[in-house]
């Protein structure tokens, strides 16, 4: 038949070749820019310092020594900058109880420059490498155990976030990138404690990420998950929807008799 002249795998073959060529071409063009984050050049530090003086020094001080409006950044490391600025928490939208994550203000290049500058001020945790967030050999079961022991009391057992004291909160993890999760653990942003590599080993961090990825898949064997907030939403549902439907039907049955 005319329709089956092509082999069924032809499409995939074409796609494979096309993607492979594009990828190879891109790699050839951009080889010199790929490993930029690892080695901070002097110009990058200078650029970062300039950005820091313009955007951050009003609170963190001109030498990043801190002020009454913001903490010292000496020794917080590149990971802290990458997390705070990369998630849009910094620059702060306004003086608030807790920084809100929003679309980042700076470009990736600028963030890398600022991270390099802050890293140059004092030793601190570096931005995790791709290897550090590679979950191919991670153990989801152990990750679940670690998550329930260390994370769920604030972030909720399904990673949906929860309330902390005085208007602070532990954020929802459903759109957290693996790199952000590691950065949060090693730098302890906002109210979060630091989970250093001694407390939770790098391999265990991968396991936790693997479990968070499992949660992010939101497989719901039981149906709609009602936000996974626990029994409260279930209670609201039974009154508003469940009993609502039955009362409407009761009124209908009662009215038919007239």
């Amino acid at each position: 038949m005319a329709l089956s002249r092509r082999h069924p795998a032809a499409l995939f073959a074409v796609l494979f070749v096309a993607l492979g060529t594009t990828g190879a071409a891109y790699a050839a063009v951009s080889t010199d820019t790929a490993p930029k984050a690892s080695v901070a050049s002097a110009t990058q530090v200078d650029q970062g310092k300039q950005l820091f003086l313009e955007g951050c020094s009003s609170c963190h001080g001109v030498a990043a020594q801190g002020s009454s409006n913001g903490p010292s950044l000496i020794g917080v490391g590149a990971a802290a900058v990458d997390f705070q600025v990369g998630s849009g928490r910094m620059p702060l939208a306004g003086p608030n109880i807790q920084a809100v994550d929003k679309p980042p203000v700076y470009s990736e290049e600028e963030i890398a420059a600022m991270a390099a500058y802050v890293a140059s001020l004092g030793a601190g945790p570096a931005i995790p490498s791709d290897e550090a967030v590679d979950t191919t050999n991670a153990d989801v079961v152990l990750g679940g155990e670690l998550f329930r022991t260390n994370c769920s009391q604030c972030h909720n057992v399904a990673g949906r976030g929860g309330a902390l004291s005085n208007g602070r909160w532990a954020p929802n993890l459903m759109s957290s990138e693996p790199k952000e999760v590691v950065e949060a653990m090693i730098t302890g942003p906002q109210n979060m404690p630091v989970f250093s590599d001694k407390t939770i080993t790098p391999q265990e961090k991968k396991d936790i990420i693997r479990y968070i990825q499992e949660l992010q898949k939101s497989n719901n064997p039981g149906g709609a998950d009602l936000g996974r907030f626990g029994p409260v939403t279930e209670g609201v549902f039974i009154f508003l929807v469940g009993l609502g439907i039955l009362i409407v039907i009761s009124v209908w049955i009662g009215a038919k008799a007239r």
């Binding site: 679940g144 155990e145 329930r148 022991t149 769920s152 009391q153 604030c154 972030h155 909720n156 057992v157 399904a158 949906r160 976030g161 929860g162 309330a163 532990a170 949660l215 719901n220 064997p221 039981g222 149906g223 709609a224 998950d225 009602l226 996974r228 907030f229 626990g230 029994p231 409260v232 279930e234 549902f237």
Partner: peptide
């Protein structure tokens, strides 16, 4: 259609664990 009490997310009871939103 609607899930209720997804116990598999909570894990087995251990006195050392707790979750936000325990209700």
């Amino acid at each position: 259609l609607v899930a209720i009490n997804p116990i598999w997310l909570y894990g087995p009871y251990t006195p050392s664990q707790v979750t936000a939103g325990s209700q």
